[in-house]
């Protein structure tokens, strides 16, 4: 999926089929509706970046996709089939892998035990460990350490390692960069790009990051529970700083 800057490539082959679709999805917590009709498509093998300020409903969108929250209206489709109300563990076993906001790890389990939790999708522990340690040698050194005592970057690596070891069809990443040093974020996104090139469909949620635009095929801005803009990363980047800083700089 390399892009040749400055050369317009006209694609003749049809777009790949949508793997994930949100159609008019409304969802919320109790009486408070957070998503007011969200439409979003992630095609097979594509990387979609969902950006926007806090409170816009990005994490809620991830929760709906992951099956942690059932929409009150609209449809969530996975490979064309409606999966509204399918529970998160079933979706996970179907190949939807989510790294939630915060650290997607169990702090009071060791690194090995964390990886063991990934085996519930059917991959053998030895294979999960092999893949994870090969990608992240730093984690291999800490395999018997409690995950909560590692640094933030290492914890996020563990979460990624867990996600990648299970060969997901879809990867949902919520605020991967939160609280991490830019260098580590860069490393992590290089990895995401690599995974994408292997054909995994990826939805990346970020609040403040141009970083992610570099690897995305499509980007969207989410404001107040709606998709405010969709376009190429270049188009979206133009609008970004005004969305965050109110156009008061640059």
């Amino acid at each position: 999926m390399t892009k040749i800057v400055g050369v317009e490539i006209v694609e003749h082959e049809p777009d790949p089929a949508p793997l994930i679709e949100l159609v008019g999805v409304r969802a919320g917590y109790g009486s408070i509706e957070v998503l007011h009709g969200v439409d979003l498509v992630v095609r097979e093998g594509a990387v979609v970046a969902l950006l926007g300020p806090n409170g816009g409903g990005k994490s809620t969108t991830v929760k709906v996709l992951a099956g942690l929250l059932t929409p009150t209206a609209g449809e969530v489709r996975l490979a064309g089939r409606c999966v509204n109300g399918t529970s998160a563990d079933v979706l996970a076993r179907l190949g939807v892998c989510t790294i939630p906001e915060g650290r997607g790890i169990f702090p009071n389990l060791t690194v090995r035990e964390n990886l063991r939790m990934a085996t519930q999708t059917g991959t053998r522990l030895s294979r999960v460990e092999e893949t994870a340690y090969a990608r992240f040698p730093r984690i291999a050194e800490r395999r018997n350490q409690l995950a909560g005592t590692m640094s933030g970057g290492e914890q996020q690596m563990l979460a990624m390692a867990r996600a990648l070891a299970v060969d997901p069809a879809v990867l949902l990443l919520d605020e991967l960069s939160m609280g991490l040093a830019p260098l580590i974020v860069e490393e992590l996104y290089e990895l995401v790009a690599q995974v994408a090139s292997e054909g995994v469909s990826i939805l990346v949620i970020e609040q403040f990051a141009r970083t992610v635009l570099g690897i995305a095929d499509t980007a969207a801005i989410m404001l107040s529970g709606r998709i405010a803009a969709v376009g190429t990363p270049q188009e979206i980047e133009q609008q970004l700083s005004s969305a965050y800083l109110g156009g008061s700089h640059e």
């Binding site: 960069s177 403040f208 635009l213 570099g214 970004l240 700089h249």
Partner: peptide
């Protein structure tokens, strides 16, 4: 507003 460290923290370092 004009502090580079702040801009980096908010927007992340661009890879492009």
């Amino acid at each position: 507003r004009s502090n580079q460290a702040v801009l980096d923290a908010y927007l992340g370092e661009s890879l492009t």
